[in-house]
């Protein structure tokens, strides 16, 4: 066994790895694909362009009354961060494509900012992580976030039902699920006006 892994070979590998740490960073890909390069993956503008290519996007500010906020919180099952909703409605040739909302929330001690696009049928059409200030070890990988697509505001949108948790990133999973519920709840309340 020891002959398989001679000391010098592994020592050299360690040296090479340490040297590689200082190598220049390769150019970032041009496509706006989230990458593990730090905390900010996409700006708001980039995220909207990614979600609504070729669409007209109208920004609107909506102030929730106390009663509306209370109703949204009841629907979401958690508190809203604010009574102001920033609504980005996308249309193509006059036809509604989706409505984007942004939600910034604390994960452990730092923030995660997500964009959630609600489809005309009130399901989640897209979820993008725009910024993640916690160590990236707490950012779920793989296709974990894809679980939210197609979910609507019901009991299935929960870590105990339709969203599967992830060991080691439990707080991120909870924070993201709460954000999804908040967004769908606000969208519903605004639609009830």
């Amino acid at each position: 066994m020891s002959s398989d892994l001679p000391r010098l070979r592994l020592g050299a590998a360690l040296g090479a790895l340490l040297l590689a740490l200082g190598a220049p960073t390769p150019a970032a890909p041009s496509a706006p694909v989230p990458a593990v390069r730090g905390k900010v993956f996409l700006t708001m503008e980039e995220a909207l362009e990614l979600a609504f290519p070729g669409c007209e996007v109208e920004r609107d500010k909506q102030f929730l009354s106390k009663a509306e906020r209370a109703r949204a919180e009841e629907l979401a099952g958690c508190e809203l961060e604010s009574s102001i909703a920033y609504v980005y409605s996308a249309t193509r040739e006059g036809k509604p494509i989706g409505t984007a909302y942004f939600d910034a929330h604390r994960v452990r001690t730092k923030r995660e900012t997500v964009m959630i696009v609600v489809a005309p049928d009130a399901t989640i059409q897209r979820l993008e992580i725009l910024a993640f200030a916690e160590p990236l070890d707490y950012l779920p990988g793989g296709g974990w976030y894809a679980q939210y697509l197609g979910k609507r505001l019901d009991d299935d949108l929960s870590l105990k039902r339709g969203i599967r948790g992830i060991t080691g990133a439990t707080l991120t999973a909870q924070a993201t699920t709460r954000a999804a519920r908040r967004v769908l709840a606000v969208h519903q309340v605004l639609g009830e006006r």
């Binding site: 900010v40 503008e45 102001i84 900012t113 725009l130």
Partner: peptide, 26 residues
């Protein structure tokens, strides 16, 4: 309206560019 815009800038400070011409209000 201005306060609302500035609140959005603060709420989403990670992802909102703060300098430049208005686009989507940003």
């Amino acid at each position: 309206d201005v306060l609302g815009d500035e609140f959005e800038q603060i709420s989403f400070r990670d992802i909102v560019p703060v300098i430049g011409d208005s686009y989507y209000g940003l």
